[in-house]
Design a protein around this nucleic acid. Structure first.
Lengths: 341, 341
DNA sequence: TATTAAATTGTAACCGCTTTCAGAAAAAAT
DNA sequence: ATTTTTTCTGAAAGCGGTTACAATTTAATA
């Protein structure tokens, strides 16, 4: 059980009786090496268990074969699905993924980027400030970047948005066109950007259809199931005329459903409800839950394609691409009252 | 809006009128530099927006300040919570995280590690083969590593296990000691290691308490909610004497609950049920769902602490540490039939 | 076959930082 | 004030690649 030493390009060159330049070319798929040489070098390299040093490559101006991802929170479904979809593609192209959390202030944020920038070829980030693309280009003129958002309001400033707002708008519009004129919103966590955007989508729809202020009830929530439960409890204690509820996520919608079941309300007969996220459980509840689906995998794929293109073209843009991924409303039993009966 | 160039240690040295060695020392918190010099260099560095090149550092034998994580699937709750907990700690210590998926064959796996190894200081991995620690030490004598498992059976081969088996054992034992002598298992996804381990935990408990083979029913499942639904349907079509069910995860338990509700069965009066994972919804269902909780965050924290210790001590072990994180049974309404009444 | 063009391969100069070793400066001792 | 220590700083040699440019080999043309 001999200890294998880390072999370098020099070892490979020496054993293969070629120059290090040749070895380097082989590992970079340079076209100007004979097939015979390539085969030979590869063989030796394999025998020596050689793998080029990422550091050395990076240093000498080469690529890092790594892309960075900075998201607001490295947690939950967005994070999980997003990373998953990107990682699969990245791996196929020999790239690694480094993830970082995002700090509050711009200075902290840019410091994080600065530090990361020396080990990546490109960065996918989500950070909301005006003119983020320009600022990135100014501060990191050599670093390809793709700016993400879930906030369609920022569409002009970012490359890719997974449209939260429209999802909420569609859900609300759907509830209204089902015939409901008195409607409630269960908000998401205070300060959370998704929560804000979904609230705006709701309000926008409510406004578009001219629902009266007094027919709209806004309830606080935290995105957690229990807060949906508490919210409807409070709601129906206060008034009983609300016939439709839009919950800012499915967890809260289920919490709400739960309370209504417990107190004998019929869904969708008494109240129609629609959630957001389309989690797996949404299909299994009784009644099944209408929800808005955001294609996070596609979001990841697009982001990756875009960053790879920027990297390969070595063209750092400071004008956002402004691509939008639309949400999808999935209507199920909880909001399908057939009023014609 | 001038373009800022990437400044190097030479620029800082020149402007600060010191040598690059001094600048290097300042950035490495070397004790042998005067406070005055440190302050001065830092000031210049800040003005130049200097940040040491990770590549150059790595190359010259220094640290990468990056740790790698290789998990079976970069998806779902384990991944999400695990990465989240580690990342928070890592960031506080100035480390970045690079994630990679795990391939099937050992050779593919080791190739992945090989490639990653040049850009990390240490690796946290989950991969099940005999003597993995020894093999890692042999192949990567310079790379600190922490081997993870959720399979307590492998405890002797790995550093840290989040004990799946015992969780299933505890849940089953609980159901049995509640007085149930006829019990069913809903298995997880075929081939999935967690599924296997949980099945073994169940069988082990059933065996310990001498439940008769004919009083045990094993049902197929996929970890998805619908499969739990289908499983109980099949079960009760076949026989009606089963009084307790252990579902290999909460999603399936909820699916099962759903079917039983629909067909008028009372939980826990007619059937007691216990799930696994303790997802948030477990507390909110009616009845609330008993479940097994695995502290994934703690798992991450421990793994990180361990790898950091190995890195700082520069001691690559080939003997596993064998630390086990115990599961926690959380009994709720779904398995709390008070039989004394 | 000699000559020239094209295809390969080798040489050597970086890339930006760490670190050993030696020299200079400051502090302590005589 | 001079010598001896102790501290701090600088010079220079790598670390392991990439790549422009030179050298060499092979193919093409006369």
């Amino acid at each position: 059980m001999k200890k294998e030493k880390e072999s370098t390009i020099y070892d490979v060159a020496r054993i293969a009786k070629v120059s290090i330049a040749t070895v380097s070319r082989v590992f970079n798929k340079s076209s100007l090496v004979t097939d015979r040489t390539v085969a030979h070098v590869l063989e030796v390299a394999k025998k020596l268990n050689f793998s080029p040093s990422a550091s050395a490559r990076g240093l000498s101006g080469g690529k890092q074969e790594t892309i960075g991802i900075i998201l607001p929170v490295l947690y939950g479904n967005l994070f999980s699905e997003f990373i998953y979809s990107i990682q699969a593609l990245a791996e196929a192209r020999g790239y690694d993924i480094v993830v970082a959390g995002q700090k509050g202030s711009p200075e902290e944020f840019f410091a994080t980027v600065k530090k990361l920038s020396t080990k990546i070829d490109g960065l996918i980030l989500m950070y909301h400030i005006e003119g983020i693309k320009k600022e990135m280009a100014r501060r990191f003129p050599k670093l390809p970047n793709i700016v993400l958002s879930r906030f369609v309001k920022y569409r002009e400033h970012v490359d890719l948005v997974l449209d939260n707002f429209s999802g909420a708008f569609m859900a609300t519009e759907h509830l209204i066109t089902q015939g409901n004129r008195k409607i409630a919103l269960i908000k998401g966590e205070e300060g959370n950007i998704d929560a804000i955007e979904r609230t705006e989508g709701f309000l926008s729809a409510v406004h578009k259809f001219g629902i009266k202020k007094t027919d709209v009830e806004i309830l606080e929530g935290t995105f957690r199931q229990i807060s949906g439960y508490n919210a409807v409890q409070e709601l129906f204690l206060k008034r009983k005329d609300i016939s439709a509820i839009f919950a800012s996520n499915d967890a809260m919608a289920l919490g709400a459903l739960n309370w209504m079941h417990r107190y004998g309300m019929k869904i969708p007969e008494d109240v129609e409800i629609c959630g957001f996220d389309d989690i797996e459980f949404a299909q299994m509840t009784r009644p099944s839950l209408s929800s808005v689906y955001l294609n996070t995998s596609l979001f990841g794929q697009k982001a990756f394609e875009m960053i790879m293109e920027m990297i390969s073209e070595k063209r750092i843009e400071d004008t956002p691409k402004q691509l939008i991924i639309d949400p999808e409303l999935r209507v199920r039993e909880s909001s399908s009252l057939d009023r014609s009966k």
